[in-house]
């Protein structure tokens, strides 16, 4: 049973000619407990597709269905703070907050009831390989890999069914990339998450269960 389904999804920019689509007729299905890679060259529309899946953009054609429900009819804020966790290439953490505050903020925003938020945040940070001492640091005092781990921990904070990551290892060295990929694999296998990684890295593609190659339409 797919948790996320893309039905004939097409997208074109508002100011583009009518027949000039970034992509068209995309039909992908995603299940829980599996890892997916959406592969494509630069400009193929990987990040745009991620935006459609996360509800940050609306598709021009077709539908995105989450758990059988059309995103067009859903409260997208609630969808983003409850059902799907997003990990951005540039992390998108709030620099004025500490690492743990970023995670707790995400819990606060979520509609999911979470008890003992601080303990849960520390536990999550530990699960992505961060210490308590690192938790108290401001974001800008953490390395790229550490920030990426924080971003992953944040995306897990409200226990969403889907984790979607945009080039999560693009800025990281190979060793850190492997560690991050291990985390994603564990999340799918042990915590039954649907992990979708948008990437052009072959290394990532080699580690996932299913690859969707986004050809330019």
């Amino acid at each position: 049973m797919s948790i996320l389904k893309l039905e004939d999804v097409g997208y074109r920019y508002k100011d583009a000619p009518k027949d000039q689509y970034v992509f068209k007729n995309i039909n992908y299905e995603f299940e829980q407990g599996k890892t997916y890679a959406i592969k494509g060259k630069s400009g193929s529309g990987k990040t745009t597709l991620l935006s459609l899946i996360t509800g940050l953009e609306k598709c021009t054609e077709g539908n995105v269905l989450y758990d059988g429900k059309n995103l067009k009819k859903m409260n997208l804020d609630k969808y983003r703070n409850t059902d799907i966790g997003i990990v951005f290439q540039s992390y998108n953490l709030l620099p004025r907050l500490t690492a743990i505050e970023n995670i707790i903020l995400s819990m606060d925003v979520s509609k999911v009831k979470i008890k003992k938020k601080k303990e849960k945040a520390l536990e999550l940070m530990k699960s992505v390989g961060l210490s308590e001492e690192q938790a108290k640091r401001k974001i800008l005092k953490l390395s790229g890999g550490e920030q990426q781990r924080i971003a992953i921990a944040r995306s897990l904070s409200y226990n969403p069914k889907i984790i979607i990551a945009d080039e999560p290892t693009g800025n990281l060295d190979k060793e850190t990339e492997t560690e991050i990929l291990n985390i994603f694999t564990r999340l799918a296998k042990e915590e039954n998450k649907c992990v979708i990684i948008v990437t052009h890295s072959q290394n990532v593609c080699d580690r996932v269960d299913c690859i969707y190659d986004l050809e330019k339409k």
């Binding site: 996360t54 940050l56 804020d77 609630k78 969808y79 983003r80 703070n81 409850t82 997003i86 951005f88 998108n92 953490l93 709030l94 004025r96 903020l105 995400s106 925003v109 979520s110 944040r154």
Partner: peptide
């Protein structure tokens, strides 16, 4: 900051 808040569902 506004962008981050919006992406995490605020």
């Amino acid at each position: 900051e506004i962008g981050v808040f919006r992406t995490i569902g605020v």
